[in-house]
Amino acid sequence: MGESHVRGMLRRLSLPGSIVLLGAALAMSGCAAPVDPATTRESLSDVTEDPAPPEAAELYDAELHPEPVVDPVDCDPYLVITARGTGEPSQGQLLSPVARTISQARPGDVGVLDLDYPADTDVKEGGTLGVRTLIDVLNVQADACPAQRFVLLGYSQGALVVGDGLAEPEARMVGATVGTVAEEALDRVLAVVFYGDPRFVGAEEYNVGSFDPETDGLLPRPEGALDAVEERVRDYCVAGDFICQSSLDFDEEPHVEYYSNGMQGDGAAFVITRLDDAGAEFREEDGERTPPSTPTPRPRS
């Protein structure tokens, strides 16, 4: 496959129209169709069965193909990026009410972007694209919008994608070749919230929930892999969730408890507290909103 053809494919897999501004975010329903936990578990378990790298590892290799796969979006003071779970729709997902609550807390200041990745059962292929896309979004936005800060939300496979994107390549399960988040962009990440994280590590201090601290997830990340952002992370896991609490107990209910157990609101409250701490950075001395640093971006053809 020629390099020019690969670059063309990268451009077509960018984020056309994925930005969801405040009005659309408020219109999203809080009622989501729960994922199928058994299918999710099976697809995540398949990640370790075949040691061969996926085709996406070369297709999205950052050294071979350094051009970003995304164009910048608007320079809202805050950009909330959601990464949905396996089989979830881009709207009406578990993370939609979390993002909506954050938007309502800062009217007019929050852009919401659903990460454009497959979120299907081919986790190695789709997850690699997800990690590359997340890294490029953060780096491109940090370059285009000097005042913008980021909030990252991930559920199930989406938590794997976000966590691997923030970790160093050697600590990743997917996306080892797709580059890294620039230090400047990483510094702008205000908050990271996970639900039902397959890379859950029970011993981490940022964990929240009824989990057993001696039990890890299906694909635990190396302990300390997220040390660079650990004070900004909340990783929610409930007892019996066989995605973030790997076990032989195949009760499917706990992995979808996050839709109704109040942890969506708790995660949003954590993020809003983090926004409060950073809010002054987005205001001029006269109290007016800092204008965007770049024009409205053009859509990519």
Rank of each mutant, 00 (worst) to 15 (best):
D114H: 10
Y117M: 09
G127V: 09
R283G: 03
E184S: 15
E253K: 13
S247N: 08
A280L: 14
E223V: 03
V161F: 09
T180N: 04
D46W: 03
V201I: 12
R12D: 15
L13A: 14
C237V: 01
E230P: 05
Y60N: 06
P295H: 11
S43A: 15
A24Q: 15
V201P: 05
Y195A: 05
V233T: 06
F150L: 11
G179L: 03
A99V: 05
G127F: 00
R234G: 01
I243D: 01
V123D: 07
H65Y: 13
R7V: 12
G17R: 13
R172L: 03
S210Q: 01
T86W: 02
S246K: 07
P213G: 04
G23C: 13
Q104C: 02
D46A: 15
F211V: 03
I243H: 03
V208L: 03
V201S: 02
G196H: 04
T39F: 00
A191G: 12
A25I: 11
G202C: 03
L275F: 08
D36Q: 13
G2W: 04
D74Y: 10
T48V: 15
R298H: 13
D227I: 13
V208G: 01
V137M: 02
Y60C: 08
R283I: 04
D212A: 08
S156T: 11
H5V: 15
L152G: 08
D241Y: 09
E253Q: 15
G196P: 07
P169T: 08
G179N: 04
A52K: 15
A25R: 04
D76A: 14
D74M: 11
M173I: 14
D249H: 06
A24M: 13
D71F: 12
G179C: 09
L22I: 14
T290Y: 13
G196W: 09
D216N: 10
R11N: 01
V123Y: 01
D120Y: 04
G111F: 08
V208P: 03
D74G: 14
D116P: 01
L13G: 01
M263A: 13
Y60T: 10
V73N: 03
E3W: 12
V131P: 07
L248I: 12
Y259F: 14
A225E: 04
D114L: 10
A167E: 09
V162T: 06
L115M: 03
G262A: 05
F211H: 00
R106W: 02
A142W: 10
G224K: 01
M1D: 14
D143I: 11
T48C: 00
I272V: 11
N261S: 12
V6L: 14
L153V: 04
E281G: 09
Y60K: 12
G267S: 12
R188A: 05
